[in-house]
Nucleic acid binder design. Structure first.
Lengths: 343, 343
DNA sequence: TCGTATTAATGAAACGATTCAAAACAACCA
DNA sequence: TGGTTGTTTTGAATCGTTTCATTAATACGA
């Protein structure tokens, strides 16, 4: 059996018209019990499987949604993807996944591919400026929702996380547990996320007249970069040290933690409290379990699908920019210092 | 502009027949320079994009390959996926990715979906026993290659990694660097991978008459499980300790490392050498950079696509089971003990 | 200028599902 | 029995490509 059975084969086998087979598949109520059974038996006997290509050719659109992320290996996106897939499945759509790997040309290739596939809509965490491309897609009836990027609500729908709020949350937590000499460790502030988190932290520190915030630039966002910063810290005199450190992500924090704990002169959290960002799996199983800021990735993925559904339903575009607030996860690395009066 | 332009629109706009437009797209050589230019201009002006559904309806098959993995969040699979995507792109196919999440029903849903999409073939890292399903697919002309699972070569093609060899490699390395009292730390040996790695290690140890191997059961394969095992070790008397530990994966090894380094009584690698498995990103940035066994994930993904291509080309099935050998990655955690004569 | 060989362009048919107006059938009452 | 209403079933038309047998155009030599 080389060619798979078509609806016509099923119709012949069951001695009915093709339209009837189609009705059994799509509008079972229109078909009498008797013929329905005959048709279903024929389907079973022939091992008939719907040809989706023919289906969507007729329908004019597919039942798939394109999703392009910057890096599927990044747990943040992995989680967003999974939530989006689940939400899409609920409304009967499947997700086509593309990984741009921060590469604009790969991104462009995926948009081309998805356009050929006539996806219902596109979710994209863009590499560069894709507004022109998105506008063009919309003209052709393919709505787009931006993911992990705040967009001008009058023009596009988007889902994003408030990094400023996350930074505030982290710094506020350090202050609330009695720390006053804070330090921010983060890569180049040209990265929006880093800049926003720093800004939020500054906002929190300004609320306390006796608190200070020192900014320590890191060379990237890796464990090794964090260790370098940590090594600089341990060489300082006791009076020059911060008592609370907020790292722009968990990898940096783990690196800092390594330096501080390796030398055995500084204890976490007694001498220095430490908090990261992202709440990666490793945070909980660090030598000292790491406090962190968790991003609502499931909500991001789910909401992105919902916004897309909204765009698909209404003809006139009424876009929404949904901004989520991250969540503080407290662990041992920021346990209150002895004798401090946490408010 | 609601409906996107079709090949017919392009033909009208350029005052040629539809067949000519199709030829410009598929066989540019058959078309004269002049008309080719006219058609291309029309395509550009109308923003024409091929409708892939119509295309594959005509062709009878798609240009996509289905890939179902157990967990996209697992770096092992992430890497396999990326390699498969790249290899597929080279031969002009795209990969549809499905994440079964170790759930047989999700797996089954993806197989259904891919069958409706008329994928050219299927790569699958199966949850349960899918042989019946695979046989059925093959009858309908959809070949399948098993990924990360060794299959009976007379029946199926597969790509897998030799865990026994990996275990041997790890233990042999510990022996070669002078260690003699080895320990294996690993979860339930009901997991095939764990059992095979242990078996390989035993094989290496048997080669040295003066070497011993102790098996320490861990409760799962996590950092915390490793730390528990490590805590038991540090309570032992000096004479009862192993001098080389092989952990069934890197997470366990990192946990063991945490326990040993936290107490400051035992040094890595001077007192105890430590080697893991998988070579995750964290291995290199551990407090003591961790030696590990790297699995050739890129080769797995690439080869899976190649085997699928072989199955697609030849009508009569001549399957191959390709087994890859993992690779030793030496880092500081297994640096030779002082004064030992590594051979 | 004519015939022939070569190259280019044409357009109907096919792929397989869905849709929908029309036909067939069934049920019911007068 | 005939008419009316409601329920099932039918099958041609359609979606947008590609294919391929035909036809048209062009080039070339005698």
């Amino acid at each position: 059996m080389n060619r798979s059975a078509s609806i016509k084969d099923v119709a012949n086998h069951a001695s009915v018209a093709v339209g009837t087979v189609s009705n059994v598949l799509n509008y079972p109520d229109r078909v009498s019990q008797r013929t329905k059974e005959r048709v279903l038996r024929a389907i079973d006997e022939l091992g008939f499987v719907r040809n989706d290509a023919a289906r969507q050719l007729r329908a004019g659109h597919s039942r798939t949604i394109g999703l392009i992320v910057l890096d599927v290996g990044n747990p943040f996106f992995t989680s967003v993807v999974r939530a989006a897939e689940d939400a899409a499945a609920l409304q009967g759509s499947a997700v086509l996944l593309g990984d741009s790997g921060h590469d604009a040309s790969r991104e462009s290739n995926y948009i081309d591919l998805f356009q050929e596939q006539r996806v219902q809509g596109l979710l994209i965490s863009p590499v560069g400026d894709v507004t022109a491309r998105i506008d063009q897609l919309r003209e052709r009836g393919v709505p787009t929702v931006l993911v992990d990027r705040l967009a001008d609500e009058s023009k596009y729908s988007s889902v994003s996380v408030d990094d400023d709020a996350g930074g505030y949350l982290a710094a506020r937590h350090l202050l609330d547990t009695g720390r006053r000499r804070l330090a921010f460790v983060g890569g180049p502030t040209s990265i929006r996320q880093v800049a926003d988190r720093l800004q939020g932290a500054e906002r929190a520190v300004k609320e306390e007249s006796d608190a200070t915030l020192e900014v320590l630039d890191s060379d990237g966002q890796t464990v090794l970069a964090g260790r370098s910063v940590g090594n600089l810290l341990v060489e300082r005199g006791p009076g020059e040290l911060p008592d609370g450190i907020f790292c722009a992500n968990d990898l940096l924090a783990l690196g800092v933690m390594q330096s501080l704990t390796m030398t055995h002169t500084l204890r976490i959290p007694e001498d220095i409290a430490l908090i990261g960002y992202d709440d990666i799996d490793f945070a909980v199983s660090a030598v000292v379990p790491l406090s962190s800021i968790r991003q609502p990735t499931e909500a991001l993925g789910r909401t992105a699908i919902e916004l897309l559904a909204e765009e698909l339903e209404s003809e006139n575009p009424k876009h929404r920019a949904v901004i989520f607030t991250p969540e503080l996860v407290v662990r041992q690395s920021t346990a209150p210092a002895k004798g401090s009066s946490a408010r």
